[in-house]
Write a protein that binds this DNA or RNA. Structure first.
Lengths: 198, 198
DNA sequence: TTTGTAAGTAAATAAACATTTACTTACTTT
DNA sequence: AAAGTAAGTAAATGTTTATTTACTTACAAA
């Protein structure tokens, strides 16, 4: 039998992300995607059940999995608190600034009910994304290093400002001198670290 | 001549927000909206040029304007730093937890290229949203009360974690006991205040 | 009370939509 | 080398889309 052409599968995914980043999730259509990927619409349906299936697999299996991997690169739950948080922030920034299409879909993860529900269900049923970070936080709370805030508070503090700064990074995209850089990221996360440490 | 029925205009706006909150921006159509509002599709086009015009006016003139008003309620740039930040956070939380449809569109403001660009252009051309907060921050930086971070850093720290906590609030929506409450908001913003003060 | 006019409607339009049908291609297995 | 089969295509499906056309309604001004 004829083998799957993995290049085509890859093209579908990367071009879908590109369209989402440039025109928005609300302007992604199966026909537009097929045309841009130079394939027949039918080919998408060989690899994905339907549009929803494509979107969910793209979000969970492609984008979130790679995002998690990049964020946790050379991070360990045993790290010193300040060191660990800085690692997470700089990893996030380094990864996302070079992966605008992935970042675009991550942003939709909070706004689109489809993606948001899929993410929550996945977390509930199959264990949580970013588990090492939760372990890291629990350890430092128990050791009395940081304040005993709810995990949602830490989630809000550790993940959302850095994503916002990445948004700003892309908004300044065309300018000759970038305002958002590693130094600024480090300063911002330094303030957060100071704020939650005892 | 026959006068405009303002109730219908209001119905269009509120039902559009409701559909966006429940089904997502990508599932809002003019016909669905007309049907849900019990009017003819043509009526929408009396009040708005087209779908894009509707979306932008809904976002900028309805949602953002009211959001800003609520956040700045009894806030003044002359306030003490900790007092001012707490006021902003509690205002934001109190307003958004009772306005889920508005919150849904605000979330899309960062992900949808259409809304994001409109917001940036509006800020550039017609002066900035949340001007009193910028004044407040400038004053406290100049007085040496808080660290001299870029305005984008303060924007990321002051606005994004609280929006994330509101998301969590709605995710816990159906539970008997709410986890996200004023006390948690106050604790979280207390950490931020401590982090950025000199 | 008549009349001009914008507000409003129902139904239609053409384009775009997600998905399928009917068929061909390319490659592995035999 | 032949056969079997999943991968792939082009074109069509019926539906839904944004927007418009042709018409009716309701009311303020005369």
């Amino acid at each position: 039998m004829r083998p799957k052409n993995l290049e085509k599968e890859e093209a579908i995914r990367s071009i879908a992300l590109k369209i989402i980043a440039e025109e928005g999730l609300e302007n992604l259509s199966m026909q537009k995607l097929a045309k841009a990927a130079n394939i027949s619409p039918r080919t998408i349906y060989i690899k994905y059940e339907n549009k929803e299936d494509l979107l969910l697999k793209l979000f969970i299996e492609e984008v979130l999995v790679n995002y998690e991997k990049a964020v946790l690169e050379s991070f360990s739950p045993d790290m010193d608190f300040a060191e660990g948080v800085k690692k997470i922030w700089l990893n996030t920034f380094a990864y996302l600034k070079n992966n605008k299409p992935a970042f675009a879909l991550i942003r939709y993860g909070k706004s689109s009910p489809l993606l948001n529900n899929a993410f929550r269900n996945k977390n509930i049923k199959e264990g949580v994304f970013f588990a090492p970070i939760h372990q890291f936080l629990r350890r430092h709370i128990e050791a009395g290093v940081i304040m005993d805030f709810h995990r949602d508070v830490y989630k809000a503090l550790l993940f959302s400002p850095i994503l916002d700064l990445v948004s700003e990074y892309f908004d300044y995209e065309e300018r000759p001198v970038q305002i958002i850089d590693d130094e600024m990221i480090t300063a911002c996360c330094g303030a957060l670290i100071k704020g939650v440490m005892k």
